[in-house]
Amino acid sequence: MAAGASSPGGSRAGSLSRALTGWTFVLPFAALFLVFTAGPVLASLAMSVTDIRGADLLDPFAVNPVGLSNYLDLFADPKFVQASVNTAIFVVAGVPLTMALALLVALGLNSGLVRFRTLYRVGYYLPVVTSIVAISVVWRFLLHPDTGLLNASLGLVGAGGANWLNDPAFALPALIVMTAWRNLGFAMVIFLAGLQAIPQDLYEAAEIDGARRWARLRHITVPMLRPTMLFVAVITTIGYVQYFEEPFVMTQGGPLDSTLSLAYHTYNQFGFGDYGAASATGYVLFVVVVLLSIAWFRLLRNNVDR
């Protein structure tokens, strides 16, 4: 992802002034970012290699460096291992599901519909803003084993239902669907904005060439949407690797830790005052997201963003 912009400047003075211009544009951001984001991140990274606990809060310097032992201990912790597996399943199933649904909706809303357009946009965005408490009540009603809408519908077509949220085999899939439902609107908004950046004349030219809908989608929309897709993929991955709220309100990580996520586990460790271990878990999450993001960059890069 190096210079996609204008060709490298000619003279030395030219490149110096380019550099100055560049830095002028990023300076306000960079200053705030370094102080308020990068600084605390570095400090927490430092915490992850010490034995800092809640009892050290008053005097955080009086702790012992323990090297990587916080990290090594994690892998001996069955909860951490279980949470890692759950999180992996969640991300691998949830991210593509959410993106596919969001893209479908965005394409539908962008296909020249004029009537009800605002209504649809607002409607599909509503789960993003609806209080998690209301969401949890309604979803619990849907998934209730005796009185739930889902089991009733399954019963109509002759299929047996399940005790969704209390069965270790079904709780995680149920939460994955619920999370995709809840986050679809977020990705949709970004896709909608991204779709507007595709020059209309590309489509017009294609239409003259007689390209069908599918061909236009495949050869114009998808390639032109790549930077947006990359963004959505990375942001959704980050969000899903850190998924927390859904198990927190729906299952408290149960039954039998089947919906415990790494972020939930970190939150618990933090609450226990186990700051060293919590930070270490946080940075394991970090490494996972970095690796996944590199994969996304590889998969979705195009000639603009190489």
Binding site: A31, L32, V35, G39, L45, M47, P60
Partner: peptide, 23 residues
């Protein structure tokens, strides 16, 4: 902001390096 950046950096470095051991 510069003072803040310095402070953050100092905090981080101090945490990582000096870690003088608990009493």
């Amino acid at each position: 902001s510069r003072r803040g950046a310095l402070l953050a950096a100092v905090t981080a470095v101090a945490l990582a390096a000096t870690a003088c051991g608990r009493d």
